[in-house]
């Protein structure tokens, strides 16, 4: 492996780290898990960088790795009972003020969404990836991206307007 080429890819990977951190932070709901996830992602990317096809979108490749790791970890986590903080056990919440949402509040809203819905909202809304890229990252057809996006936005809207999260849970 030519060292020069490797270093070039690495410096390009480096430019994506802040965005991977942002996505992971919003996805995981806390900074510790997020940085662990990004660390795993970067390790895997470095190990497999020879598998990355030159000329293809490096960002999408990195986000795909991160997504797959997250899915694996969540699958592991799903085998244990869901942990709900006592603070979270509320019947319904008052509607939040438009445009003033604190991170903890948004983390809480997002935590009520499924991983699939959270990912799509963040990829499209925060990371600004195209529908096609999102389909590639999440490894689903574009039609699925669109229907998930619509459902995810609907659910977040209902949560933010004060609807009880328990109502969403049932629907899945």
């Amino acid at each position: 492996m030519r060292l020069f080429q490797k270093r070039r890819v690495e410096s390009e990977i480096e430019t994506h780290i802040p965005r991977l951190r942002r996505y992971a932070r919003a996805l995981c709901g806390n900074p510790d898990d997020a940085d662990d996830l990004v660390q795993d992602c970067l390790r895997r990317a470095l190990e497999r960088q020879s598998l990355w096809q030159k000329g293809s979108d490096l960002r999408a490749w990195l986000f795909t790795i991160l997504h797959n790791l997250h899915v694996d970890q969540r699958r592991y986590a799903a085998r244990r009972p869901h942990i709900v903080d006592l603070d979270d056990v509320v019947v319904s919440r008052p509607p939040c003020q438009p445009s003033i949402v604190h991170m903890s509040e948004m983390d809480r809203f997002l935590s009520y969404l499924s991983d699939e819905h959270r990912s799509i909202l963040l990829l499209i809304g925060v990371e600004g990836v195209s529908y096609e890229e999102a389909a590639q990252i999440l490894n689903v057809p574009k039609g699925t991206v669109m229907s998930r996006l619509s459902r995810a936005r609907d659910q977040l809207r209902r949560l933010m307007s004060g609807e009880a999260p328990t109502a969403l849970r049932r629907v899945k």
């Binding site: 802040p18 965005r19 951190r21 942002r22 932070r25 919003a26 438009p98 445009s99 949402v101 604190h102 991170m103 948004m106 909202l121 963040l122 809304g125 925060v126 936005r153 977040l156 809207r157 933010m160």
Partner: peptide, 16 residues
Amino acid sequence: LQIEQLQAVYGNIVDA
């Protein structure tokens, strides 16, 4: 508005 709020909340993490 959701998108704006998500961006407002998480956007500047890239600057950390």
